[in-house]
Design a protein around this nucleic acid. Structure first.
Length: 293
DNA sequence: CCGCGGGCCTGAGAGC
DNA sequence: TGCTCTCAGGCCCGCG
């Protein structure tokens, strides 16, 4: 499911009920997630306070008072829901929603402030891991990640350097979390369309031979930042699984220019092209062959 | 090292 | 209705 904008939307939904709150009780209904939860998962969380809730790429990072960090990933179909004590829901609706959600609620956090946070993931490609904060920079899950695309260190020079000499497609390069961390299938397609660059173009062609960025690299960086910013502002994209933590849908799927729009007119001003779908490295790519060169 | 394909899972939707 | 097939916001591993 989630790419950077969806994960950031989830982070913003969880932060108000988790930051400063204590894990009163933690229940792992099943531990066989993408990687297994440790036997002492609940014990290492219970009684600890969440000092802060951050994000790195598509990972959520809960800093704990114990000096550990709870690392969470949503995989393809993971979602979090927040149920608050005494919110406006009627008891009937509350229980109805809980029962709807229960089938794949693998982990449930009962916070000391009365909030209940559930992690639901039908496909179980997501998971959680507890690591010592002091060892976070050596954590294999995070170690090889490239720069945050909305951070200061991400710019055309760095993107060009990372793509220098790469014979693979731009689509594959942008999907590679070691080059830039947080994009997935939707936002790669959308960013390339905004930058008017073909997903099939060789990644190396955004850099000069010296590795210096060219004008394409500049356009691409601007497009990536813009699409991620717009998507976060819209609460992410809801296709199948993504929900905000209050259960509401994201809205950015209505603003897709190419993703999942095969056969429709290209929205670029003055372009009379039609959105095409091709398969690259096993995933669907949507693009306009007329204005994306 | 590099790029690609398969596999991990479940569920939704299309087509017959 | 029910079956079979394809596809899905991710990522790791192994092969050539």
């Amino acid at each position: 499911m989630p790419e950077l904008p969806e994960v950031e939307t989830v982070r913003r939904g969880l932060a108000p009920v988790m930051e400063g709150a204590r894990f009163a009780k933690v229940v792992a209904h099943r531990r066989d997630l993408r990687w297994p939860l440790p036997k002492d998962f609940a014990a290492r969380l219970e009684g600890r306070t969440v000092v802060g809730l951050g994000r790195r790429a598509k990972y959520l990072l809960a800093d704990l008072s114990s000096g550990d960090v709870l690392v969470m990933h949503l995989g393809m179909s993971g979602s979090f829901r927040v149920f608050r004590d005494g919110d406006e829901r009627t008891p009937g609706k509350y229980h109805h929603e809980r029962s709807q959600h229960l089938a794949h609620d693998h982990v449930v956090f009962h916070m000391g402030n009365g909030a209940i946070v559930t992690f639901n993931d039908p496909r179980r490609f997501g998971s959680m891991k507890i690591v010592a904060r002091a060892a976070l920079d050596r954590e294999p899950l995070l170690r090889a990640l490239g720069p945050e695309p909305l951070g200061n260190e991400f710019d055309a020079a760095m993107l060009a350097r990372a793509c220098r000499g790469k014979t693979t497609s731009l689509k594959a390069a942008l999907s590679d979390q070691r080059i830039v961390a947080g994009l997935g299938n939707i936002y790669v397609c959308e960013a390339l369309h905004r930058a008017r660059l073909s997903p099939k173009r060789r990644a190396s062609t955004i850099a000069a031979k010296s590795g210096a960025p060219n004008e394409r690299a500049e356009r691409l960086v601007d497009a990536i930042r813009a699409v991620l910013g717009d998507a976060i502002a819209a609460g992410g994209s809801s296709l199948r699984d993504h929900r905000r933590t209050d259960g509401e849908l994201g809205r950015f799927q209505h603003d897709f220019r190419v993703y999942d729009r095969e056969g429709l007119r290209c929205p670029t001003r003055g372009c009379r092209g039609t959105v095409k779908r091709v398969v690259q490295t096993g995933r669907s790519t949507f693009f306009c062959p007329v204005c994306q060169k």
